[in-house]
């Protein structure tokens, strides 16, 4: 054991916004917003609250309205001065490049990466690993037994792929993904805490940062994701949006647990 920490990097706290045709869905109830559906205004609020990064998940179903995310990203980059990751419907290097040009810092590949894993290497070669995130949705093969492993799902969790999640995560990193956004489908929305077994398996398999997602209900859960799960960042959506948790509270809990965090 070295007395000196290997890094002084702070753990990141990341609110995630679901954006449909340019509007935030799942409502937001925690601040006095002029327009709770406006992702740009929300992004600025989270920036001011001390969020370390933002994720936009574009869930626009209609292809006619797909390009609205580019306008949202461009407008957000005008008002938020923290990093922005955009995922959802990113299928090609060109898609990713368009998002980066609009002002995103990173793009997340999910379903497209499983269908064509080479898109990760292509994107990493063309754009750099630092802006290529692999988003992985994983579900336990056996609810009671983490030793049975986890399976990768795509298409927003609707399609089982048969792939082993930990092996897939390692492949994503080997292909050039600079970061893994790992969602536990079992825990998502449960507020029971992250699947720490999954996190430990994933963070043990790759050297790139892993963002924990799915299940956090309390600040203590967030801290555990970092300290016990080995994640580099924690992500949550509705618990932030509805004011059940504030970014500053999460950072307090992390600091108390001995996790380094950024203070404004």
């Amino acid at each position: 054991m070295s007395a000196k920490p290997a890094t002084t990097l702070a753990a990141r706290v990341i609110p995630c916004l679901d954006v449909d045709a340019g509007r935030v869905v799942k409502g937001v109830g925690f601040v006095d917003l002029r327009d709770a559906g406006d992702p740009v205004e929300l992004a600025a609020v989270y920036d001011a609250e001390g969020a370390d990064e933002l994720v936009f998940l574009d869930i626009t179903a209609s292809s006619d309205e797909r390009d609205t995310i580019l306008d949202v990203v461009a407008a957000t980059a005008e008002q938020a001065f923290i990093p922005l990751t955009v995922g959802g419907g990113v299928r090609s290097v060109d898609d990713a490049r368009a998002l980066l040009r609009a002002g995103a810092d990173k793009t997340a590949f999910n379903t497209a990466a499983v269908a064509r894993p080479e898109v990760l290497s292509q994107a990493a070669d063309a754009l750099g690993s630092q802006c290529v995130v692999a988003a992985v949705d994983a579900r336990r093969r056996d609810q009671q037994d983490p030793a049975a492993g986890w399976e990768v799902y795509t298409h927003g969790g609707r399609t089982a792929t048969g792939r082993d999640a930990v092996a897939w995560i390692a492949e994503c990193a080997a292909r050039g993904a600079g970061e893994i956004l790992l969602t536990s489908m079992d825990r998502d929305g449960s507020k029971e805490g992250f699947d720490l077994h999954l996190l430990r398996a994933a963070t043990g398999a790759v050297s790139v940062p892993v963002i924990a997602s799915g299940g956090a209900g309390t600040a203590a859960h967030m801290a555990a994701g970092i300290r016990d799960g080995g994640a580099a960042a924690v992500l949550a959506a509705s618990i932030f949006h509805f004011g059940e948790l504030r970014v500053a509270e999460v950072k307090d809990a992390m600091a108390e647990a001995g996790v380094a965090v950024r203070r404004g």
């Binding site: 290997a6 600079g178 970061e179 790139v208 960042a233």
Partner: peptide
């Protein structure tokens, strides 16, 4: 160095 996560991504002091 490879003993830490690379890329170095995030907020540092």
């Amino acid at each position: 160095p490879d003993r830490v996560s690379v890329p170095h991504m995030g907020w540092n002091v």
